[in-house]
Design a protein around this nucleic acid. Sequence first.
RNA 1: CGGGGCGUAGCGCAGUUUGGUUUAGCGCGCAGCGUUCGGGACGCUGAGGCCGGUGGUUCAAAUCCACUCGCCCCGACCA
Length: 568
Amino acid sequence: MRISQLFGKRLREIPADADTESHRLLLRAGMICQLSAGIYSYMPLALRTLRKIENIVREEMNRTGAQEVLMPSLQPLELWQKSGRETAMGQTLFRLQDRKERDLVLGPTHEEVVTDMAGRNVQSYRDLPFTLYQIQTKMRDEPRPRGGLIRVREFTMKDAYSFHASEADLDSTYKQIVQAYRNIYRRCGLPAIMIEADSGAIGGKDSQEFMAITDIGEDEIIICDSCGAGANVEKACSIKLKAPCNPVQDMEEIATFEHKTIEQLTAFLKISSSQTLKAVFYHADETMVFAVIRGDLDVNEVKLKKLLRAADLRLASDKEVKHAGIIAGTASPVGLRGIKIIADESVLSGTNFVAGANKDGFHLKNVNYPRDFTADVVADIAKAKAGDNCTVCNGILRTIRGMEVGHVFKLGVSISDKLGANFVDEGGTPHPIIMGCYGIGIGRLMAAIIELNHDNKGIIWPMSVAPYQINLCPLYSDNAEVVKRADSLYQELINLGYEVLYDDRAESPGVKFNDADLLGIPLRITISPRSLEKGCMEVKLRSNPQADMIALDDVIAKIKASLTHTCI
RNA sequence: CGGGGCGUAGCGCAGUUUGGUUUAGCGCGCAGCGUUCGGGACGCUGAGGCCGGUGGUUCAAAUCCACUCGCCCCGACCA
């Protein structure tokens, strides 16, 4: 491709609305064009990279034995009502009606459609197992699109679904797909780690996410450097610091005046926050929930929501708190009646806590579980944090941020059961098909690759996903010898099957070099009168500041070697 | 949905507080000609705007008021 013919302008100035590096670079390189919030066109360079990523994904999926299909974006709302996920998806679902006023949705994902299709084509355990996948457009009315391609409303996703007669069989396919995912990230030049994840509203057993580690990532990850275990903070468990344990003493009321928050209370009483109990009130599906946790910890709302099996969980309003007879600032589980109490395990890991007295200006000293109060449920509802200990190896945990570039989980029968997708076993008994599902956002993967592969000049594409392999860069377009050499090398490289971006413009060297760095094509070949006088061309890797002067006769061999060497 | 910011030429911005000196400007980019050229060259000439939209106030609105649409960021949310 000649740059003079290439559609899409490179920008010198940084677009004002772009805050993340991948967004800025995608815009500056002329790769994407925004149509609306979270809705983008992919221009020729971007599409080439997307296609390469798709092909890597396709190869690795095919290698697991998965079969490619293509399912519709237009889906009857009815299917979503049947699966029960219409409400779970809420406003994220794009809805529309056809001319007969039948309700449709634009598919945000395809569990429903694929399960329906599987159900129609499976009768017996003999028809199982199989895995289907597609590379297709998803539409989600995200509340807040952001960061260019990082969170968008219309995007391409590879989504795969596996169908099994047994859990053991699901486990084995799951492992294969995880390996395929690792291969995909490696081949795309994107370091990604696998962590434990919450399976979300969809339910299911195991769930893992693949994360590209970057500060602009939307997820917080708790990670252990000693054993390598990692988990999304939504899911992470940890061993908390011990609170002082002393002989149990009698409970007594103490005046604490205006000291209401944990900070004020600990300063006033000169104790550590781990010697206090904190109360947090939630509104879970129309009922009030009172959560009790040690004062030095925070409630993990995802864990709590899951524990309560609540569709909706939010902090209770001041009004609701008051209505429940709770005095905020000195709320207490002691003597509380008529409200569901959930206690974090940490209430067991200390003694003689200071808790509220549910009486303005007073707190209770020496509160002990279960002597002084009991909970309906005692469970782990605490947020893991940096400095806690790893539950696997007791190492010290730390926090990093990550960008989700893949998600796999064991769905089980949650969808197939509702949609009546059954098989009969050897004995002729029907069972819902056991499922797994596996997703990779292709566009987001491209954005992640840029986030992790760039410098202050521009993108540094890994060879495997670069829009072109070679940037042919002749300087001084009025020099006949340069042009002749460049034209013939361009033709020769194309004949050899290489993908070449030929900078045939009459621009100054500075402009060409800067554009080359911005576009990030892995190999740059510079042809100039100066190098030709020495009987050479200049060969340079984008990832390497040094260029090599290569004798004309050796240039092709050098290019071949460089490409083989940098191909992943 | 809560909080903040922004809509003026393809891009980046000034002008808006205090309405009139603006025929609405600057830089980049764009077109033509010439001189240049190893890390975003220079000169000359030129094109390009219903100042997001609608309605008001006024002799007069990019500028004041009301409504509205759109975009970005933080939070909530996120199979």
